[in-house]
Design a protein around this nucleic acid. Structure first.
Lengths: 118, 118
DNA sequence: TTGATATATTCCGATATCGGTATATATTTG
DNA sequence: CAAATATATACCGATATCGGAATATATCAA
């Protein structure tokens, strides 16, 4: 019984978690990427979550390559590594026509008629 | 003990599953969106998965609003509803500079090394 | 060295999620 | 109505995943 597939840990899975998106957002605001980044303590204060939780989510982001780390003494400076977000961007972009076309109205009407028919 | 958060079922979570991305891909290829869409049987044949699996993933996509359904007799015609992908697009787009900048940096360094080599 | 600080890791319990199989529900057709 | 077709749903077992608490590891400072 094969059960669940082994969680292909990729960028898609990583950003599915709202808190990990929050981390990326926090890391990306303000600071120029050129600097070393921001350390975990800063993130903990900024987000107000328990430190292990922050570290664990950072671990996932790290494994997937969405963040980069640089050791700085006993600190670890994290920064967003956008490279890994590009595939997500490219994927979604393929569906651009689906929201740009205004066929939505046609579809919406069809659905409305459908609902009324039930 | 609060345990796991209740799986905020949104577009991000929906597209985290590779098979659901496959479904969207299958639904989006070839066919103009104007038509009613494609039915489940077509998807089952196209993907080669057991029918319940297809229906269940369609159920998730439906709940999130990533696909639209229109009943056509005993068939259900599915089509991609791009509207719900827009937030994902907008979110990733915010990080565009992170991979573009990185490419710039790589390119810049390559050029610098090239100059120094001469 | 000892203690403090910064961060990661481990262990645990609860729950969500996935695939598989069987079954229910609707709709058409004979 | 009965049989067939199309699709959804329910149930189950395995596993992944999350949050929480405790602990390990590394580094700095006195």
């Amino acid at each position: 019984m094969m059960a669940r597939s082994p969680t292909t840990l990729d960028a898609f899975a990583a950003i599915a978690e709202p808190r990990r998106r929050e981390i990326l957002s926090a890391l990306s605001r303000g600071l120029p990427v050129v600097e070393g980044g921001r350390d975990v303590t800063w993130l903990v204060e900024e987000l107000g979550w328990p430190q292990p939780q922050v570290s664990k989510h950072l671990g996932v982001l790290r494994e997937v390559g969405l963040v980069s780390v640089v050791r700085k003494g006993r600190r670890r400076m994290y920064s967003v590594n956008g490279e890994e977000l590009k595939p997500v961007y490219e994927w979604v972009k393929k569906y651009e026509r689906f929201w740009e076309q205004q066929l939505d109205r046609i579809k919406a009407r069809a659905e409305r008629m459908e609902r009324e028919r039930q």
